[in-house]
Amino acid sequence: MTLLEVEGLCVRFPTRRGLVRAVDGVDLTVEEGEVLALVGESGCGKTTLARTIVGLERAQEGTVRFEGKEVRGRGRARPMRDYRRRVQMVFQDPTGALNPRQTIYEAVAEGLRVHHMGQDEERRVADALSRSGLRPPERFFTRYPHEVSGGQRQRVVIAGAMVLEPRLLVADEPVSSLDASVRGEILGLMRNLVDTTGVAMLVVTHDLGLAWNIAERVAVMYLGRIVEVGRAEEVLQSPQHPYTQALLSVVPEAKHVEQQILQGETPDPAAIPPGCRFHPRCPLYQSGDAEELGIAQQCRTVDLGLAPIANDHVVACHARA
């Protein structure tokens, strides 16, 4: 069943250089109990998308539906409050995500108090800590964040999210600030939480290997738009969008494909190219293949949406349409 449904979502920021279109018409769904990895270069808008889904940014256009009901309104409205409990977030840097003056117990219990789940608070906190791998939990109650390791801190943040019994966990680069040695452990913990509690997870990452390890489905984002979505093995083993292909070709494990180094920087989200937003960097377009296929004109002028090419595999590319 579909848990989260994002449709036509646009988030824009006015800046001195003009209007930045960080999220520019995103369609995305998260199914119950699945892990969806959202991948893309830095600056492609994936973090903004995640923050908007959690309700930290306001979308100018589009809708977010959760369990079939549209999420709107400010923090005080009752449905929003309920939504804030059922969708939790995990940040990249656990050191910054914990108040240095709060004990670990306080950090985990805070959410419970906000949502009036204070009955048998201590048991709930202990339970969340031990399920996040901090055992025995009582030993961590009175400690401060600076007294535990980076990996343990991220476990505290995860416990603080899971204690609210969410349906969806949005994790923004959950392991990229951690030591390589504990990355696997934290990913294992997250996968385990999905399998045991049925929580769904949206993992924002720039690391395709991570997506491969943890996700059922992968969504590829480029310059404010999703350009390819599908089952992880399909997207990662037979990528259809030239951008996905280029991303994958530079993964060290991918020996069988020729490396494609994309030309140029990520274009400016304040000045998104017309037509297919990827065409100025597209190897297919640059090599003249698009011209041969007779679609070059479309690439330059027609902005296209996602179209299905196979079961559950959608791509936004004129060459695959």
Partner: peptide, 22 residues
């Protein structure tokens, strides 16, 4: 600018409470 304020807001704390408590 600290993330723990953002996290507190994401958890559903009102802005005024975030300011007062964190």
């Amino acid at each position: 600018g600290e993330d723990y304020l953002t996290l507190a807001r994401a958890k559903g704390l009102r802005d005024a409470t975030v300011r007062r408590r964190h």
